[in-house]
Design a protein around this nucleic acid. Sequence first.
DNA 1: TAGATTGTTAATCGATTAACAATC
DNA 2: TAGATTGTTAATCGATTAACAATC
Lengths: 211, 211
Amino acid sequence: MTFTEQHERRIPQRTIPRLSHYYRALLESREVQLISSETIAELTGYTAAQVRRDLAYFGQFGTPGRGYSVEDLKKVLLQILGIDHQWNVALIGMGNLGLALLRYRGFHEQGFNIIAGFDNDPRKVGQMIEGVKVHQMDELAEYAKRDQIRMAVVTVPASAAQAVVDQLVGVGVKAILNFAPVRLQVPGGVKIHNIDLAIELERLSFLAIHK
Amino acid sequence: MTFTEQHERRIPQRTIPRLSHYYRALLESREVQLISSETIAELTGYTAAQVRRDLAYFGQFGTPGRGYSVEDLKKVLLQILGIDHQWNVALIGMGNLGLALLRYRGFHEQGFNIIAGFDNDPRKVGQMIEGVKVHQMDELAEYAKRDQIRMAVVTVPASAAQAVVDQLVGVGVKAILNFAPVRLQVPGGVKIHNIDLAIELERLSFLAIHK
DNA sequence: TAGATTGTTAATCGATTAACAATC
DNA sequence: TAGATTGTTAATCGATTAACAATC
């Protein structure tokens, strides 16, 4: 069974991380052959109706009366999430957060290969960290082309982030994970996703004091 | 003007990070006296109606025909978000991500003081990193009590996270920022917020391949 | 066949937006 | 006063849930 784009309707934003959770549940589940939406729901904490609805946005992958083939559904979810292949990723900004992400094993395990680091600090340029060479920003175009880099992680200070993003867009990067605490402008066709630790902390603080 | 809890209705989850963005906009804005919902909207990328609606969940802070007092609104948002005072935070897990968060200046700038680190790796225990001492997990209760720790950041492996969270709950921690990629159980009254880098990467991958 | 479970429709729920009376 | 802008109501939009015919 293969996922084909044709079935696709407008997907609620919140469906996307749920798909990731479903995929994880399949990896962890002991069900070898078939798994029901009810079982996936139990493993993930969502509801069975939600599981079926989310999957149905992308096609018909189950068999009424039986359930979903674990093997097939894994493949389908890999395809839908775009993690059925490797991504070459550039990491821009070699500060503490950048270095931590470089050392974080999760990226590589998921098929996201950080293959080049960039920073304008002369003390960092030329260093080799975790097998990844640190380059000057003006070498970005060269490596982006050579290594088909279409995804980037940005961990530069807020004040530098828009310029960095403009450069990334200029060399053909299509998806950016931004940790700088600032709203960035990108042209249509380029996707940006923000993780803002300060705002997450404030959210936690809010939750802590409101009942 | 002071925010009092009494006005509060059920707050949409998505309102919370927007409040943080409004607060940032106030810090950055050049409006000295008064600011309109329209101006806040322009600075944050939301709509004026949304700004007014979000603020109205917590009380009446504006003046019709005039706008909001920048100074007053700053104070109110600080109170609502719970960042009008310092939080003492324990950091559990001194791996790469934990160390990066320890070095990340944003925490301290926001009034979140990481005052103790915990890890069970004997090579890490006793070390002093960025002015923070690393302790064994079994010393948690002692420090939690002494330093009134009510918030914690968890960066241990998924397999260890539930045990860690149970201990945190046991010593009175009320809010947990969890980076371990696993769903954790907490009793009512304890708030947990998850940041899952693997899932954020998969989200980015999804966005990158879906038009 | 009887029981199980999907995919989908309709109903519900919740959040956002538009509109405007109230008010400065 | 006239113009501006809030706070709130009603309308709209979007996402979730319940229910069930279709199907294995």
